[in-house]
Simulated scan of single mutants.
Amino acid sequence: MSLRRDKNKRKINFKVIATGVVAITLIGIVSISIGKNSGNSPFNSNIIMNISSTFENSISSGLSFFGDGFSDILNFKSNAKKVEKLEGENAKLQKQITELKGELEDTTSLEQLKKALNFVDEKYVANQVAAKVISKNDGLWYTNIVMSAGSEDGVKENSLVINGDGLVGIVTEVSSNYSKAITLLDTTSSVSFKLSRDSKSKGIITTGTGIKDEESNREKGLLQGYMLDSDYDVLPGDSVVTSGLGLYPKDIVIGEVTKVTEDKSKSLKYVVVKPNVNFKSVDNVMIIEPRNIN
């Protein structure tokens, strides 16, 4: 008897629950229906509006994105033409800059060569040829050079080679259209000099002087030599120029004394000279006909 009552209670409880659920559902449906008819929905209308607004904004943003992209596609060809035009104008400007730079270099070169002529007496100026250095020896320093002027231009052997900074060297070989020269740094070069402040104090720029650091000095692009008299008062900082003895006319700038050493056992005073010409870069020169010393 007790088991049957339990089963009946369970059946009754299930029916009660089911009946309750159905009743609640019906009440909900009725409420919605009444809300629609009266305009007062039990649901929050703001939520619905927000969802609708968000959806509309998304559609608007998407249309704007595609619209902008389509506009860019339409303008691509026009932009490409503008870029091409700018590149063409840039190329023209680059060409003009290169031409102006070349003209400036030529003008600078002419000014340097005019300055070079100030080193030589007027009687030598009439026999001069401007030339470019077209080749040089291997290595850091210019010791041997080839120039773009030869016998057809009036260049002769032993002609003087100078630039706007001073003495470069001397012509050793002449062909019809080019010539070769050795610079002051060449081991076979030799030139007589004097102190610009005292023309009586003379010496010789040459190699093989016996200076302790002669090879090291040469590697540094320095000249070395000796005074003809050990009693000559020579000091670092003294300017040296050609003395006028031998092939070179006087007063052409050579360089500046950087070191003085004395060998009392040989009664000699040695000098190290920094050349005024930059022998790392010699581009334009003036070739002066040699004077007749016979």
Rank of each mutant, 00 (worst) to 15 (best):
M1D: 14
M1V: 14
D6W: 10
K7L: 11
N8Q: 11
K9F: 08
F14R: 12
A18K: 06
A23H: 03
A23S: 10
I24N: 04
T25E: 10
L26M: 09
I34L: 15
G35K: 08
K36I: 14
N37I: 15
F43T: 12
N44C: 02
N44R: 09
S45I: 12
I47K: 09
F55R: 12
S60Y: 05
G62H: 05
S64H: 05
G67M: 04
S71T: 13
I73Q: 02
F76N: 00
S78I: 06
A80Q: 01
A80T: 00
K81M: 03
E84T: 01
K85A: 00
G88E: 01
E89F: 02
E89L: 07
N90C: 05
Q94H: 06
K95A: 11
Q96I: 11
I97H: 09
T98L: 15
E99V: 06
K101I: 01
E105A: 13
E111T: 09
Q112E: 11
F119D: 02
E122I: 15
K123I: 14
A126N: 13
Q128R: 15
A130P: 00
V133F: 00
K136N: 03
K136E: 04
D138E: 14
W141Y: 13
Y142D: 08
T143W: 07
N144H: 09
I145V: 07
M147A: 06
S151K: 12
E152A: 13
E152F: 14
G154Q: 07
V155S: 06
L160P: 01
L160A: 02
N163L: 02
G166Q: 05
G166N: 04
G166D: 03
L167G: 05
G169H: 03
E173A: 11
S179T: 02
K180T: 11
T183E: 03
T183M: 03
T183P: 00
L184K: 04
S190E: 14
F193C: 03
L195W: 03
L195F: 02
D198K: 10
D198L: 08
K200Q: 14
T207F: 09
T209Y: 02
G210M: 01
G210Y: 01
D213V: 09
R218Q: 12
E219D: 15
L222F: 06
L222D: 05
L223D: 04
G225K: 02
L228F: 07
D231C: 00
Y232E: 05
P236A: 00
G237F: 02
S239R: 11
V240Q: 04
T242M: 11
Y248F: 13
Y248E: 13
P249E: 13
K250Q: 15
V253T: 10
I254V: 09
K259N: 08
V260A: 01
K264E: 08
K264D: 06
S265Q: 07
V272E: 04
V272C: 03
V273W: 03
N278G: 01
K280Q: 12
V282C: 01
D283V: 07
V285L: 02
I288Y: 02
I288K: 04
E289R: 13
R291I: 15
